[in-house]
Structure formats: structure tokens, C-alpha cells
Design a protein around this nucleic acid. Sequence first.
DNA 1: CCGCATCCACCAGGATACTG
DNA 2: CAGTATCCTGGTGGATGCGG
Lengths: 136, 136
Amino acid sequence: MATVTAAERRAEAKRAYDAYVAACPSRKLLDTLSDKWVSLVLNALADGSKRYSDLARTIAGVSQKMLTQTLRGLERDGLVTRTVTAAVPVRVDYRLTSLGESLLPLMAAIKQWAESHIEDVEAARLRYDADSENSP
Amino acid sequence: MATVTAAERRAEAKRAYDAYVAACPSRKLLDTLSDKWVSLVLNALADGSKRYSDLARTIAGVSQKMLTQTLRGLERDGLVTRTVTAAVPVRVDYRLTSLGESLLPLMAAIKQWAESHIEDVEAARLRYDADSENSP
DNA sequence: CCGCATCCACCAGGATACTG
DNA sequence: CAGTATCCTGGTGGATGCGG
């Protein structure tokens, strides 16, 4: 039975897409930077070194799992450093690398844009939702 | 049975978190901007109006569902306009609003940072992965 | 051509409990 | 204190088919 069409087309499309993504690695990096926790962690580290528990407190609502995962990713990507100080209660500090610091202004700008335009956006939402109620 | 502790604490924590998020709406907006497709769509609309199918072709790998969903969200947030031209085959154009245009430079900067630092990041990853193989 | 509706797989991510 | 390990759920997002 030559019912390969569906499966084959899917596989083909997937390979093509993967190839495209691989050819354009900045896309993957963009995905990483688009992570909601990444921007928050980066902003939290804006003013110098912070301990793990400080970060957890600063970024309200993050689970340790996500925090650890995000920090590991950032460390792997060379955006933050992880410093373990062997003491009675272990102490771990995170700090932006120079690469991370070069990214910080951009993330801060996004955050600031969000804060200063949130009202415009919410107004637009109200207008949109109001219009939607009339048509249906 | 006064076994309210666990459930109650969870509910309490969730309410507290929701309250925090509601009190800080920029967090929600940050979540929106952190969407991977949002940045791509915005960048795709950088140089003027585009048709739906143009966008679909420009942003390789996006499903119509995600594209439509993203565009609707952006429209609702007042970042893009949607113009329907009634013709035999319907024609729909999307264009950045002035609000969207004010955001564009920031997104473009992020994209550019990603493109110009991808090599540093990949080098850092190789180093990190190499070190990880020794310790375990 | 543009988009909506439906179904469904998958994995991100939260809760919980346990170590060094 | 700073994780690691494990389980489990819900929402994201792809595939498909229909409608204007």
C-alpha cells in the first residue's frame, strides 16, 4: 500500500523546518531569550551578584525547578556565572558575565517599554473586546 | 477533619501570586512579549504592510493556527491593524500601529543581539558541555 | 485566500519529598 | 541553603477538515 503521502509529507516538512532552524541558529537563541523567566532573572541580576534564595524571593511565583533550570541554561549560554562558596550552609551566588551585561540593557528596555505602555495596551484590549461583543 | 493545611496553603499561595501578578500587569505584558512568535511577527512586519500568506511564508515553520492566534493577540493589544479587502479571493493585510512601531526597535535590537552573539553563546555551550563530561 | 473548529499528543512546569 | 528526583496535570501548539 502506497499510503506514504501523509507520513512522508509530515516527515519531509519536519526535516525541512529543522534544517531551516539549524541553518539559522539565531532563531533558537531568540527562542531562548523569549523565555519568560529568562528576562525576569536577567533583570533581577541587573544590580550585581545575588544568591539563589534572593533570586527566588525577588522573582515571586517562580518554582525552584524553573529557577534552577533557567539559571543552568543561562550559565550554559555564558550569560551568568555560578559561584559556590563552601560554608556551613552552602552559599551560591549568581552574577552576569560581560556577555550577559551586554544583553541586559535590551531586556531592561523591553521591561521598561512594557511598564510604560501597559496602559495603552489595556485600553486597546478594552476597545477590542467591546467591539467583539457587538458583532456576534 | 481539619486537614485544610495543605490545600489551604496552596490556595492561599496561588491567590497571593495572582494578586501580585494582577497588581503588576507589566508582568503579564512581559509574558506576551516573551512569546516566540510575537517577536518574529513583529520583525516580519518591520518594513510595512504584509498579507497573511506573506507572513506565513516569511516566518517559516509557523502553523496557521499559531500565526492567526498571534496576530489576533497583537491586534487585540493594539500593536497591529488588520485590514480586510473584500475581493474574489479575500485579501487581508496586517500593519504595525504606531504603538507597534514604538516597540519594533527593541525587538529588532534583541534579534540583532542574538545574531551577533550567537557564536559567543555556542562557544560557551561547548565549554560548558565539555566540562560536564569530566565531573560525572 | 483567509481563517475557524476540532481533536489529540506532548512536554513545560508545578507540587512534593528527599539529599549533601 | 541549594539543589535533585519523581510524579502528574493542563495548556501549547500541530494536524486536519470545513466554511465564508
